[in-house]
């Protein structure tokens, strides 16, 4: 019987570890940039956990520069348990109600994981029909090349994709914008978008990710989620390009967008 030799765990730096992983996966393009992702490991996780502020989180979490925690990669990989994160949140406030919004967001993960275990078929299949006036077959099964390359020509969308590529992370609101643009503006199946996120997000989890895409798509919610440029400007701050002429397809009222994106809503077509 051959003795199995373990893989190395000590590397000079992150670049050397990355080259090792690229060789293992057969993508030996060592010249690629080193991604600016969160540091792995419990030490880094505890440092992030020590900085959480549940009250500030509740007040500002929808803004890209808000007091979001960046705990998601550590929770997703079990480096931190939901139980200990919740307990840390409760220990940081004087009244549990001050941590309620933060703990509710932890509960979303528990909820997705329970669905994953009870109904694994829902992770890649429509939980319900689209509520957009279109059938599932009318959505493209493949991600368009311009989205995959981050070259859609819609400035804020391309910025979100570039951030995803470089950091393996997107603020939740940016995820919602990018998912909505993909499914509703481009009429691409949520599955194609979900695969794109899974391949790039460091916190990628099939349950949280795919069911959230279904929530955006309306196959796991009561209506499709859409947004407009005014909303992006409100939540994203000056680092994101929200100049109207650079984001023409987003620069509409919600009423007009609904007419443009869902012309058959409310009645059968085809």
């Amino acid at each position: 019987m051959n003795e199995t030799i373990p893989l190395p765990t000590k590397f000079a730096d992150r670049a050397a570890m990355l080259a090792h992983l690229r060789a293992l996966s057969g993508h030996d393009d060592a010249a690629s940039a080193i991604p600016d992702i969160a540091a792995g490991g419990r030490t880094a996780a505890e440092a992030v956990l020590a900085r959480i502020d549940p009250r500030a989180y509740a007040a500002t979490r929808n803004h890209l520069d808000g007091a979001v925690t960046r705990l998601s990669p550590y929770i997703r990989h079990g480096i931190l348990s939901l139980d200990e994160v919740r307990n840390a949140a409760l220990a940081s406030v004087s009244d549990p109600k001050q941590a309620e919004k933060f703990i509710q967001e932890l509960a979303w993960r528990d909820y997705w994981q329970r669905i994953y275990l009870a109904h694994p078929e829902r992770i890649w299949s429509d939980v319900e029909s689209y509520k957009t006036g279109f059938d599932a077959a009318e959505y493209d099964a493949e991600l368009p090349a311009d989205i995959a390359a981050g070259e859609t020509g819609v400035a804020c969308i391309d910025q979100f994709i570039a951030t995803l590529f470089e950091t393996g992370y997107l603020h939740n609101h940016a995820r919602m914008y990018l998912a909505s643009y993909t499914v509703h503006w481009r009429r691409v199946s949520w599955q194609a978008g979900a695969r794109f996120f899974l391949e790039h997000l460091v916190d990628a989890d099939p349950a949280s990710n795919n069911l959230s895409w279904q929530w955006i798509a309306s196959t796991f919610s009561n209506k499709p989620y859409i947004f407009n440029l005014e909303n992006v400007a409100k939540y994203c701050g000056p680092d994101i390009n929200t100049i109207p002429r650079h984001n023409l397809v987003l620069d509409q009222s919600y009423e007009r967008l609904s007419e443009l994106l869902f012309p058959y809503m409310g009645g059968p077509h085809g």
Partner: peptide, 23 residues
């Protein structure tokens, strides 16, 4: 590696996981 590929685990996530295991 086959399972990682089937599960859409990209290189960035692989790096994060490997760093964690190394620690």
């Amino acid at each position: 590696t086959d399972r990682l590929a089937d599960s859409h685990v990209g290189i960035k996530r692989q790096l994060f996981i490997y760093e964690t295991l190394a620690e």
